[in-house]
Amino acid sequence: MSHVVLRRVSWMVFFGVALVGLGIGAVVAVLAVSAANGFREGWQAIPVFLAIAGFIGRIGNCKVIIRDEVLTVVNPLRTHILPKSAIRGVSVDGGGTLRFHLDQDREISSFAFGGSLIDHFVGSSGKAERKVEMWLRADRAESAAAAEAVAPQARWTRCTSADAAIVLGVVVAAVGGIWMAFTSS
């Protein structure tokens, strides 16, 4: 198995539609405000859109990745890398959140499979739980000895497109602010 990516299809659809809708709304806002007050006022929707796009991108990037001996939980801010030997179990809590149980009563929750109204009808958290359980049971004895020395890790989540949108929004806001300061009457 090379890798399996688990994510909610409904999130991808929702965030894709939201991003396109906000993009169209931002263009309409820039054009409408620019027509009434000039581009000096209209450009301000651009950094707002970029910041929201970055936020949406980080949430839409959440997923669970299953590789041969490692499970990776990508959340909006933190990514958890869990060797198979460190995972004691997986469950879905009463609210529909997928949780990975580690030693010493530690738990890692998956934001991608947090509780949702749609999940109560579709059962995507339960399906993800079953896939992870099958992965955990497969070759468990061999993988425990191979990955015993590897501890779970956590690092900041990298999402190039979302981070680029946020940085570009800050740059546009700074350049626009400087431009407005130098061109004010």
Rank of each mutant, 00 (worst) to 15 (best):
S124W: 12
A149Q: 14
K63M: 00
V33H: 04
A149S: 15
V9M: 15
F111I: 06
R137D: 14
K127N: 05
A149H: 15
L22S: 06
H101K: 10
V92P: 04
F49H: 08
V172G: 13
P83V: 14
N37I: 00
I24V: 08
S116A: 09
S10A: 07
S85R: 09
E129T: 15
A151F: 10
V122K: 09
W156S: 10
A149G: 11
G115M: 05
P47A: 04
T97M: 06
G169F: 10
G114V: 07
M134Y: 06
I108T: 06
V150G: 05
G95C: 02
F100P: 00
S91R: 15
G60I: 00
R155I: 09
I65V: 14
W179H: 14
G176W: 04
R106P: 03
V122A: 05
E148Q: 15
Q153N: 13
V90R: 01
G42R: 09
F15A: 02
F55C: 02
A35T: 10
A138K: 08
T72R: 13
A29D: 07
M12T: 10
L82Y: 07
A174Q: 13
V167C: 10
L71E: 03
E107G: 01
G42S: 12
V13C: 01
M12W: 14
E41V: 14
E148S: 06
M134F: 12
K63V: 00
A149F: 13
M134L: 03
L31G: 02
G54F: 08
A18T: 05
F121W: 09
A32F: 11
V132F: 06
R99W: 03
K63C: 12
K127W: 04
A141D: 14
E41Y: 12
A18Y: 12
G89V: 06
N75Q: 07
G23V: 02
L98M: 02
A165W: 15
A18M: 02
V33E: 08
V171W: 11
V13G: 00
V90M: 03
V175Q: 12
G169C: 03
A146K: 14
E148V: 13
V13S: 00
G54P: 05
H80W: 08
R88L: 05
F14W: 10
G123W: 13
A18W: 08
S184A: 08
F49D: 00
G16A: 10
L98C: 00
K131H: 13
G42V: 11
R67T: 08
G94D: 13
I166A: 07
G25K: 03
A173L: 04
V73P: 00
V27P: 00
G16V: 08
V17E: 04
D139M: 08
